[in-house]
């Protein structure tokens, strides 16, 4: 299939120290199958590395996956760094093992949506298609 014009670009990133990226890979494939260009950077990334990759790759969306419990700290750092680089227009969503009670705080910090275990991949695709800003 020949594709022309803009495609949604998404960085799927694993901040922190947990070593499980099956969920991130499932999401990456679903986004690819929805026609998006997905940059995957592997395990154990620092917020600095994630934001650097997002800026260099000119992504529209950052999807953060975290299973270690450090999401409050790590997601907030990513948002802070984006602000520091005047890149708060990049849509940030998160996923992983994240307790209900943490979600309001994360959203208040600037994470647009949190997808917890059991969310269908289609819901993630639809959310990104609806909220990614046109370039």
């Amino acid at each position: 299939m020949m594709t022309e014009g803009m495609q949604i670009r998404v960085l799927v990133a694993k901040p922190g120290l947990d070593g499980h990226d099956r969920g991130a890979k499932v999401i990456a494939r679903a986004l690819r199958d929805a026609g998006m260009e997905v940059i995957y950077t592997g395990l154990r990334q620092t917020p600095e590395q994630i934001v650097e990759a997002a800026l260099q790759e000119d992504v529209d969306v950052i999807g953060l996956s975290c299973l270690s419990g450090a999401h409050n700290h790590l997601f907030a750092q990513v948002i802070e760094l984006l602000k520091k680089h005047h890149a708060e227009d990049i849509l940030v969503v998160g996923g992983g093992v994240i307790p209900e009670e943490d979600i309001p705080l994360l959203k208040a910090q600037g994470v647009k949506e949190i997808f917890t275990p059991g969310t269908g991949t289609l819901a993630v695709v639809e959310f990104i298609k609806k909220h990614a800003l046109p370039r």
Partner: peptide
């Protein structure tokens, strides 16, 4: 490479 079906791609060289 891009997918011949969806036009999407997984770009993994940065790993």
């Amino acid at each position: 490479p891009s997918s011949p079906f969806s036009g999407g791609a997984i770009l993994g060289d940065r790993i």
